[in-house]
Design a protein around this nucleic acid. Structure first.
Length: 792
RNA sequence: GGGCAUGUGGCGGAAUUGGUAUACGCGUACGUCUCAGAAGCGUAUCCCGUAAGGGUUGAGGGUUCGAGUCCCUCCAUGCCCACCA
């Protein structure tokens, strides 16, 4: 009775390969293009349930769109550089390249087993020289346009992974990957100038139809704040302390100035202070602290620069100068004016160090610090003015300038690791960096390296790389030993899909014009402030370099929910609640697993759904019922479809609309309702059954193919057109009758029935009449085809 | 501490976006088939009530003929940011 899913799957998959169904002709002019993208996987070697969720759902939509006449680009590739391959190499001496290849092969088999319709012919693998050649080429372009920079800066260093990290890869002061507390180091490294694009990355969000929470997260990450630079001259010296403030309106209340311990003025001032030793001790103590220790909201610490004072540019009064680590060196100017009456941090510091607190804004509460706006007091000629409105004039009065600051930092892309794209740079004998000329690209990753982490980049141990540089560039020239952050590889892969085999260019202009921007991009929420921001930056930068025709890459973005363990907890090996999809595929079939994932909940909401074994068996039973329907010859009479036509039309509209919203849970429900009606019907016409199979095909592609063949269908069910029904002539519609907003019954009316007809019919209903109990309604609300409400 | 989102049965969730709350499915109970079990099939399943009827979308208030949906206050949960001046 039960269908043999393993046999059906094998046969169907072979048939699709034979028909070459899923290789998209990018140059086809007869159909409307649709670019459907999911985040390409890292080849960890095993397909977990999250991958299934991501690929099954997008595959359902890809199949649906093809049947609806679209030319769908649905590509796949592998984000194949990264730490795990290197760790495997260190652990058991594996070759990272071979390890990665083997994992890719294994995952390919698994992805094929799902019955996905991805186009393998356009596959990209980021660790393949034919791909990274263009990553390097793009890096060179960015360098030539001064968007890639080699400079010294304070960087985050992970002592366990022995590499620097991008700001985005530090979470709560710890390495995002391994959880080790991050240290701060000053190193000369490569940066991409994402800060040049901060404003455009921000304003570009406005027009995107993304969920507000994704846009808000990016806005928070970019962190725009408008304010002013003000200068506090140092008494008796030439230097001035430049501060950034968002509250220039409070400058009359600035009773001291604070420098970050790393501030460049600290060294020159040191000779003039009377407590040199104390200051030096403070600086070395704070620089030794980890990132996390410094950001803990403990009691404020600091030290006064004895003998130094600065001039408040508004009051012209001398104020003391402090060093404190609550001021960040890397934001603004690394120095702040402290207004303890109107800032919580300054207030706390002033209390501890007994500094004067000068109130300059009359607030709504007496309590200090008062953070809000209000009426200015103790502010000279500005007394009595509104603090917000006076900002601009106060900046002018104090000799400052208005400015805008962003929280986002430049993207640090150097990694002291082996398994990454080599940075195509060499240094001349003076140590000046030069990009590797195009004819030497791909700049190959050497293989003769020592993987043991020493704090130095593994590439430094390669003899071949050193000899290569000497041979090409001459004696005294040295290679760059760092590799690129893997997020660089994944910032442009969607351009490459359009022309993945091109040896002469990174993509194809005509095809980019035709296919971009990407219509819908599905992925994980963890990439909101990393991959998604980087990819947007890359696109804008390449647009400015006239290399790509678009300046926003992704029209729609859907972050998927999370599949939890059966216990409702996040899946983890230690909890023992990890669901292995392979077992379910073996037991219940790929179709059942796909369709269950579609049914589990709305895909485009950030929910989390517990995996439920009974849910999979339920879907399998549902598929059995369809199979049973198709195998019942007595049901297949060619009679007029009667009431089933309306049911089919309803289901078709629902499945189509819900598909467009990525709400496949209700789409599956619509199919279930349809099947319930089929089973209740005396007979099911073959044509109706075929329409059901076509609608089933995206969800359960193998079974639909099998039953299609059984019913004598030509070709593949996946080549059929999606059923579209003319609006069947509806003769009667149920209108709900309410009295005072409460349901008291319903009447069947013609769809366009007049109010008078509706009222007449409604009053004849006994439950309505008794609810009215003889009273005349004072008001009647009638919404055609929906509701009739009597107000008494 | 700040921002954003979300709260609907025992569970996953639905509600044409202001118009029949609880679709679809899981689970559960009873029945049917069976020597028996499994599977299948059928019926019931938000709460109170024999019924008529009444109540119910985290809590309270408001707007409206009508609120799960809009507004205000509060509570809870999740995510993001966090000494960013």
């Amino acid at each position: 009775m039960a269908y043999d899913h393993q046999e059906i799957e094998k046969k169907a998959q072979e048939k699709w390969t034979g028909l070459n169904l899923y290789e998209t002709d990018l140059k086809d002019e007869t159909k409307e293009p649709y670019y459907l993208l999911f985040e390409f996987p890292y080849p960890s070697g095993d397909l977990h349930i999250g991958h299934w969720y991501a690929y099954a759902i997008t595959d359902i939509y890809a199949r649906m769109l093809r049947m609806r006449g679209k030319n769908v680009l649905f590509p796949i590739g592998f984000d194949a550089f990264g730490l795990p391959a290197e760790n495997a190499a260190m652990r058991n001496g594996a070759d990272p390249a071979a390890w990665t290849r083997a994992n890719i092969e294994r995952m390919k088999t698994q992805i094929r087993s799902m019955g996905t319709s991805v186009d393998w012919s356009k596959e990209v693998i980021t660790c393949d020289p034919s791909y990274y050649q263009w990553t390097q080429w793009l890096f060179v372009k960015l360098f030539e346009h001064k968007l890639a920079e080699h400079r010294e800066a304070a960087v985050k260093w992970c002592p366990k992974d022995q590499t620097v990290l991008a700001n985005e890869q530090v979470v709560d002061g710890c390495c995002e990957r391994c959880g080790t507390e991050v240290e701060e180091k000053r190193l000369t490294q490569w940066f991409l100038k994402i800060t040049d694009y901060a404003e455009r990355l921000l304003t570009g969000l406005d027009a995107l139809p993304w969920r507000e929470e994704i846009k808000e997260a990016q806005r928070a990450w970019i962190g725009k704040s408008e304010g002013a630079y003000l200068k506090f001259p140092i008494a008796g010296r030439d230097e001035k302390i430049k501060v950034f403030t968002t509250r220039p309106d409070t400058v009359f209340g600035a009773t001291y100035v604070v420098l970050a311990p790393e501030h460049p003025l600290v060294a020159p001032l040191l000779e003039s202070v009377s407590n040199t030793r104390e200051v030096q001790d403070y600086v070395s103590a704070t620089t030794k602290k980890t990132e996390r220790e410094r950001s803990e909201h403990k009691e404020k610490t600091g030290v006064k620069l004895e003998g130094i004072s600065a001039l408040n540019p508004a009051t012209k009064e001398e104020v003391p100068v402090y060093l404190a680590d609550y001021v960040l060196a890397s934001y603004g100017t690394g120095a702040v004016m402290a207004v303890p009456a109107h800032d919580e941090r300054d207030f706390e510091f002033a209390q501890k160090f007994n500094l004067p607190i000068q109130k300059v804004i009359e607030g709504t509460t007496e309590q200090l610090p008062y953070i809000g706006a209000g009426v200015l007091i103790n502010s000279g000629e500005f007394d009595g003015k509104n603090s917000d409105g006076a900002k601009g004039n106060i900046v002018t009065f104090a000799g400052g300038e208005r400015t805008t600051q962003y929280r986002i930092r430049d993207w640090l892309i150097s990694r002291q690791r082996y398994w990454g794209c080599p940075i195509p740079v060499v240094y001349d004998p003076e140590g000046k960096p030069h990009t590797v000329p195009a004819e030497h690209l791909p700049w190959l990753l050497p293989t003769d390296v020592d993987f043991k982490p020493t704090g130095k980049a593994p590439l430094a141990s390669s003899r071949e790389l050193g000899e290569r540089v000497t041979r090409i560039f001459g004696e005294g020239w040295t290679p760059e030993y760092d590799t690129l952050d893997t997020f660089v590889d994944s910032s442009w892969y969607f351009f490459r899909y359009l022309d993945s085999r091109d040896a002469h260019d990174f993509s194809d202009v005509a095809l980019m014009k035709k296919w971009l921007p990407i219509d819908r991009y599905s992925g994980g929420s963890e990439h909101t402030t990393m991959h998604l921001l980087y990819a947007r930056f890359f696109t804008k930068a390449l647009y400015d370099l006239a290399l790509v025709p678009i300046d926003e890459p992704f029209t729609e973005r859907f972050n998927r929910g999370l599949i939890m363990g059966p216990d409702g907890q996040k899946m983890s090996k230690s909890k023992g609640n990890v669901v292995n999809p392979d077992e379910f595929v073996k037991e219940y079939g790929a179709d059942a697993v796909r369709m269950y994932l579609a049914f589990i909940g709305p895909y485009n909401e950030p929910g989390s759904y517990p995996w439920n074994l009974d849910g999979v068996t339920a879907i399998r039973k549902f598929l059995e019922r369809i199979s049973h329907l198709a195998e019942q010859p007595t049901h297949l009479e060619e009679k007029p479809p009667s009431g089933l036509a309306q049911a089919l039309a309803k289901a078709s509209v629902k499945v189509t609309e819900d598909g467009d919203r990525f709400k496949f849970n209700t789409g599956v429900a619509a199919l279930m309702i349809l099947v319930n009606e089929f089973e209740a019907a005396e007979s099911v016409p073959k044509a109706a059954l075929i329409d059901l199979l076509i609608m089933l095909a995206p969800f359960a592609p193998h079974l639909a193919e099998h039953l299609w063949e059984q019913l004598g269908g030509e070709g593949s069910v996946h080549q059929q057109s999606w059923p579209v029904f003319a609006k069947t002539l509806v003769t009667e519609i149920e209108v709900v009758v309410q009295v005072n907003g409460k349901r008291r019954g319903s009447v069947l009316l013609a769809p366009e029935a007049s109010e008078a007809d509706a009222v007449q019919a409604a009053r004849a209903v006994s439950t309505v009449a008794s609810a009215l109990s003889g009273n005349e309604p004072s008001r009647v609300i009638y919404v055609t085809g929906k509701i009739l409400n009597f107000v008494v």
